[in-house]
Amino acid sequence: MALNIGCAAKPGRARDNRTGSWRVFIPRFSREKCSKCGLCILICPEGCISEDEEGMPVPDYDYCKGCGVCADECPADAIEMELEEK
């Protein structure tokens, strides 16, 4: 693929880098405990949590680095970090 002049690029290619492979601990979301407050979606440093039709948070494990910020901050204690078996 030819270079773009001046080392410029269009958006989109960051997603080629699947940072989920960095993860050691994986956040598990409990639908029962979740209050749908949306805080985890807002504060995720990856921006990899989205909302389903019911307003439930859905993490994208392709990009989740397992930092645990969401679990630490969840006011309903609905997210638990588990050691991931790979």
Binding site: L3, N4, G6, C7, A8, A9
Partner: peptide, 20 residues
Amino acid sequence: VNVLDAKNPISMGMYATPDY
């Protein structure tokens, strides 16, 4: 050719690894 324009966004002045 490369222009900052919210209607057609690009990133300019990125860094290049030894591959590029």
